[in-house]
């Protein structure tokens, strides 16, 4: 299980621009770092992050080895309907982690 801090507002007014924050606990191992014996620590990064608003993809981000450990993403979204906002991120092993929150727009 990956720890993550997810901040999605619970309520918004129609058309409001909301801020979504995602802080993922992850070492983001580059794959370029040698151990003391000279062998490389294998790459272990989050490869992509996706945001789905009621099933519709509204944001897709590719991450790369230059991104620091515990990546922190902030982005904005226009809230126009009450629905589920889900954040999904895929790790190096291909496992998809998911955090979803319901937003009420009224």
């Amino acid at each position: 299980m990956t720890d993550a801090l997810v901040n999605i507002p619970e309520t918004a007014t129609p058309g409001e621009i909301i801020e979504i924050k995602l802080l993922i606990s992850h070492p983001m191992e580059t794959g370029f770092r040698p151990r003391s014996d000279g062998s490389l620590v294998p790459r272990d990064i989050i490869t992509s992050v996706r945001c789905l608003y009621g099933g519709e993809t509204v944001l897709e981000v590719d991450l790369n080895p230059a991104i620091s450990a515990n990546p922190f993403l902030v982005f904005h979204l226009r809230a126009d309907r009450s629905d589920e906002i889900a954040l999904e991120w895929t790790d190096w092993g291909g496992v998809v982690h998911r955090e979803a929150r319901q937003i009420t727009v009224a």
């Binding site: 720890d3 993550a4 801090l5 901040n7 924050k21 802080l23 606990s25 450990a69 515990n70 922190f72």
Partner: peptide
Amino acid sequence: DDMANPGMLAVQA
């Protein structure tokens, strides 16, 4: 900002 502070991940754990 507790939402941006990576130390809060350790607190959560």
